[in-house]
Structure formats: C-alpha cells, structure tokens
Simulated scan of single mutants.
Amino acid sequence: MEFIISPLGDQAAHLEFGRPFHEETEKKIRTVTTVLDEQCPAWVIEYIPSYTSVTIFYDIHFFKKEALPYEAVRLEVERLFNHLEPMELNDRRKVRIPVLYGGESGPDLQEVATLNGLTVDEVIDIHTSSVYTVQMVGFSPGFPFLVGMSPRITAPRRMNPRLRIPPRSVGIAGGQTGIYPIETPGGWQLIGQTPIELFLPNETPPSLLRAGDQLEFFSITKEQYDAYREGDV
C-alpha cells in the first residue's frame, strides 16, 4: 500500500494517501485505522483520520533510546502497512438521523430553496433522499463532514457567520452537509435540527458517528422531535 509519510512536529507522523479524495484513498485510510484499532501499538497515543490522510501521534518516551524517534516511528509504520492491500468497504455502519426541518430549527431553509430555485419541500426531499458517507469527524467534537449531497441544494456559507449555532443543527456549506453537535460559532446555512446527541463525552468513543459510516436523514414533526428529546422514541 503506497503512502507518503512525513513528520508533523516532534510527536506525530503524517500519512498522506493522495489527492484529490476518491474511494481508493478512503480504502487505504480505513485499512490503516482498522489495523491501529486491532493491534493497538503501545507507542500510539491517538490517530486522526481526515479526507486524504491519517496523523498518528506517538509517545516520544517509548523511543527514548532512539536518537531520532521519528525514524523509529517511520520504520514501525512501514512495517505495519507497506505489505497490506487496501481493504474493501463492505462493512460500513449505517445510521439514520431524524431531522426537524425549517422554522426556528432551520432558519436558512428558505434561503437554500431560493438560491436553488426550489421549494422548501423539494429541498427537504432532496436532502433526505441521499446516502451520505462520513469522511471525517472534526472542527468540533463529534462534527461529521459528509459527502454525497446532491448538487441541486448547494449553498454558500453565510456572509455573516453566527456567533452561536444551536447544538445538533443540520447545515449546508458549498457541496457539503454536516451537523453541529455542540453550540459553536459557524457560517453554514442551517436547514434543520436533529434531536439526537452526536457528542457523548461520557462514552467510548465519545462521538456517535465515525469515519466510514453511511448516514441517511429523515424528516420528523415537532411532536416527534419532542418525543425523541424526552426519550419516548
């Protein structure tokens, strides 16, 4: 399996699998993360997958006898991964996320519809008809970056970002859609809100979604939203 490895500071190794992103890149990233999960090398502190790379943070004290710890890490990485073939993506976890679209929960839904010459109902139908793939989790704890959105509902980021995005808001920015797990500033166009918590700080792992998951949205009413929040669903 081919990749380019380089140091990132003095305690991390960056594995690059090629740009732009395509399915073969995702296969390589899934292979690396699966091996790290299964083998749990003692020198690995954590790893962070992204669209086209994996960054591995390592315990520099594990290599205290080495003059150049990064070189020892590079050899370990090559030993683990050079001989492997990219794994097939047949075991994706499938997740369905309910969304209350529009109104106070999705104040930019009409704007997205207007920008694309659609009705609000058409935007909802298009948004819920796709199967999305979680390519990475980042920006804020549990925030999933999703690919697979129809180009028919693309929308630019807001000219004036909001200082506070309500937690669990579903948004669109460019050709991507995503979910804000916690309250943060942000500039995405907000089209709805899910009652489902994505950031679970007391659980392991603390993120409901992970890279490689397949996700579908489905529309719910305000009554159903409240029932989810109250634990009745």
Rank of each mutant, 00 (worst) to 15 (best):
H127D: 15
S129N: 14
T114C: 09
V123S: 10
S130H: 14
V134H: 00
Y132L: 06
D125E: 15
D108V: 05
L100C: 06
D108T: 05
V120Y: 10
P98G: 11
P98I: 08
G106N: 04
V112F: 03
V131P: 13
P107H: 01
Y132E: 05
Y101F: 03
Q110P: 01
Y101K: 03
L115S: 09
Q110I: 10
V99M: 02
N116R: 02
D125H: 15
P107W: 01
T114M: 12
E111W: 07
V99K: 04
P107F: 04
I126M: 09
N116P: 05
D125P: 13
E122P: 10
V120A: 10
P98Y: 05
V120H: 09
V131T: 15
N116H: 05
T133F: 06
V134N: 04
G106D: 04
T128K: 02
Q110M: 11
L118P: 01
T128Y: 01
Y101V: 00
T114E: 14
G103P: 06
L100S: 01
V134D: 01
D108R: 02
G106H: 01
Q110S: 14
S130L: 09
S105P: 00
G106S: 00
D125C: 13
T114P: 02
G106P: 05
V120R: 14
P98H: 08
E111V: 10
N116V: 04
V123H: 08
D108K: 00
V112K: 01
V123C: 12
I126K: 06
T114Y: 12
P98W: 07
S130R: 11
T114N: 12
T119V: 10
S129R: 04
T114V: 12
V134C: 02
G103S: 04
P98M: 12
G106A: 04
T119R: 10
V123R: 07
G117H: 03
